[in-house]
Amino acid sequence: MAAMTYSGDDTVAEFERHRAELLRSKRAMTALFVLLFLAALAASIYVSRFYPDRLASGLPRIFEYFGTIMPNLELDKLLLSRGDDGRAIPGSIAYWYSDFWTYIQLIVETIFMALTATIIGAAGAFLLCFPAARNLAPNSVVFLLSRRFMEICRGVPEILYALVLVFAIGIGPLAGVVAIAIHTAGALGKLFAEVNENASLRPVEGIRGVGGNWFEEMRYGVVPQVMPNFISYTLLRFEINVRASSIVGFVGAGGIGTELNRVISLYSDDRVVAVLLLIVLTVTLIDLLSERLRTHFIGKEHFA
């Protein structure tokens, strides 16, 4: 009994010592992290010249600017249509949105750009994702090549591709479509390849067993398994691409971004919010629509 009590004391002491040690090392770690964080903060402030005085002089200008881009609508004239001379009256919605049909045309172009780019990009991703899946690649050379190619495609932002393509093939939506398609092929290809890597290999072996070649193994063994996921990811990508195609216009690659860039840079301040509102509305609408479609597809698959 006495021996047991003695050894118990020993355990408690050892536990306390161990605890103190742990606590010390934990505190040291925390201190180190705080120090690192502060250093990073100081360096960031210095490098980006994010000084209080600049901020103080900048902030009022932000609110000032947001004031100027607001439309000057006047309540009594709000719903007035165009005058007899065909001119819209300042203060009415018709005046604020006098370029409404141009915007709508550009919004439609933006959506078509996103759709075409998504289809082409998804087709490219579909072709790339089988050799780029670790478990399906016919050999390591093809695997590494397709992996690297996809990394290049998605590593560079679409707007950079757009910039280069505008230079190469001229101003217009084609550059935007190609730029977004390239980026989509890389980004979707990676997601598709991950889906493939989680696919069951039993059907693949079944097809190999009947004498099917690699393409037939993919077509019959893998594609039926992964297709619902592919569709869902593609729809998600379409949402992202609508956003992307609304900004590639900043570098001249077509879509509503061209107009937004123009109204912001040319000081047509009251039009900025008009265009922005349409963009936000479009993006939200597409998101809702695509979500519906996604649940429809996935829901149906679960049901079957």
């Binding site: 490098v47 980006s48 010249r49 994010f50 600049r54 901020l55 900048g58 200008r61 932000i62 000032e64 600017y65 947001f66 881009i69 707007i159 956003r243 609304s246 900004i247 900043f250 937004l260 860039n261 912001i264 840079s265 900025v272 922005l276 963009i279 936000v280 993006v283 939200t284």
Partner: peptide, 29 residues
């Protein structure tokens, strides 16, 4: 929050450049 997210970061960049001028401050904002 939906509006903040609905407008692309690059558009915010463009807007802030017009508001506070060229430079990293607009980017941070």
């Amino acid at each position: 929050l939906d509006v903040l997210r609905g407008v692309d970061q690059l558009i915010w960049g463009l807007v802030f450049v017009r508001a506070v001028g060229l430079g990293p401050l607009a980017g941070v904002l």
